[in-house]
């Protein structure tokens, strides 16, 4: 095991997967010469050549659309979107083609596309470098979505996405890119898609989150340690959802707080709440509460902390449930 940052774990994964499968190729803006603006793809152009770590023109729809054709030509493209909000030009291709093409061929053709991008706020950046757009992607039929919260999962989920024959979109918590370190298995390391991770065991309240909100929930668990025992479930794969893990923790504690950084309305948290309403009704001792971002454009960075779910907001929600 090596101690790596989240970013180093992603880079490590690429070295392993490109070395393992000659059909895997990376394309994106500034991924080659510069090794990516966050350096997630550093060293790959030198090792595997400019065609397998390709600097594209500045065209996200082109990147996503070309990936469809690359699949038809036998490649396994991994597309980097430079930032969350800059993926939006590619949504047309994602929705009209990436998620539908296999279906359109009667299942005859595979589209093993991986799309990955840094997401989320808290980094004091100018406008549109802070979005949490996972709901748009999850809502697209034919597309799987995963969001790691640890370096080991960043490596393992990326490997699983690359090896998956279905299109998979990965969101990487950029807030923790360089600050989070963790043990990462060396060599091949795959984390199966569709499996949640119990980040912390507890008995009184379940805090359910993904991506950068998982660490926040663990901080809440620490904060509340004197008052109650919190379980933290890291959803990890948003689609397909690990319903068993979700229902198990709800059954165990009977109190659930869902935490999401994205705006509230029709966010992914709403889906989690809906599943609990359908299948965990009799286990619940109170309403399922959501702590989320607000239904506003992500704010200018001097006030971004007010937007972000905080330890206090999540802890208050947990306390409310305990008193219910």
């Amino acid at each position: 095991m090596a101690e790596l940052t989240l970013l180093e774990a992603i880079n490590d994964c690429f070295h392993v997967e490109l070395g393992r499968d000659p059909d895997v190729m990376i394309l994106g803006e500034d991924v080659g010469r510069a090794g990516g603006v966050f350096r997630a793809t550093a060293g790959l152009r030198d090792r595997f050549g400019p065609d397998r770590c390709f600097d594209t023109p500045l065209a996200e729809a082109g990147i996503m659309g070309a990936a469809v054709g690359l699949c038809m030509a036998g490649w396994r493209p991994v597309c980097e979107m430079q930032y969350d909000a800059f993926s939006y030009p590619s949504l047309d291709q994602l929705i009209t083609h990436v998620g539908r093409y296999r279906w359109r061929t009667g299942g005859k053709m595979r589209f093993p596309i991986t799309v990955r991008m840094p997401y989320g706020g808290g980094v004091r950046a100018p406008e549109l470098h802070d979005d949490s757009p996972e709901a748009y992607y999850v809502h697209t039929p034919g597309v799987k979505v995963a969001i790691p919260s640890t370096p080991a999962d960043a490596k393992g989920l990326l490997a699983a996405a690359i090896r998956s024959d279905d299109p998979v979109v990965l969101f990487e918590p950029k807030l923790h890119y360089r600050t989070m370190r963790g043990e990462v298995p060396e060599g091949e390391h795959v984390v199966e898609l569709g499996k949640a991770r119990l980040a912390r065991e507890g008995t009184d309240v379940s805090l359910i989150a993904y991506g950068s909100m998982v660490l926040l929930c663990e901080q809440v668990a620490d904060e509340l340690a004197g008052e109650c025992s919190c379980e933290v479930l890291d959803v990890r794969t948003l689609k397909p959802l690990d319903e068993d893990a979700l229902l198990a923790t709800a059954a165990k504690t009977g109190r659930v707080v869902v935490v999401q950084e994205a705006p509230r309305t029709a966010g992914y948290g709403a889906e989690l709440v809906a599943v609990l309403a359908e299948k965990a009704m009799l286990d619940l001792r109170g309403p399922v509460l959501r702590v989320t971002g607000y239904d506003v454009p992500y704010p200018y960075w001097q006030i971004e902390d007010a937007y972000m779910p905080s330890v206090q907001r999540v802890a208050n929600a947990a306390r409310k449930l305990l008193e219910y």
Partner: peptide
């Protein structure tokens, strides 16, 4: 003066959402 956090909710709509 430092921006007031209430500004998070300002200007997203002409008629603010009731939830704000």
């Amino acid at each position: 003066p430092p921006a007031d956090m209430s500004l998070v909710f300002d200007h997203a709509h002409v008629e603010p959402l009731p939830s704000f």
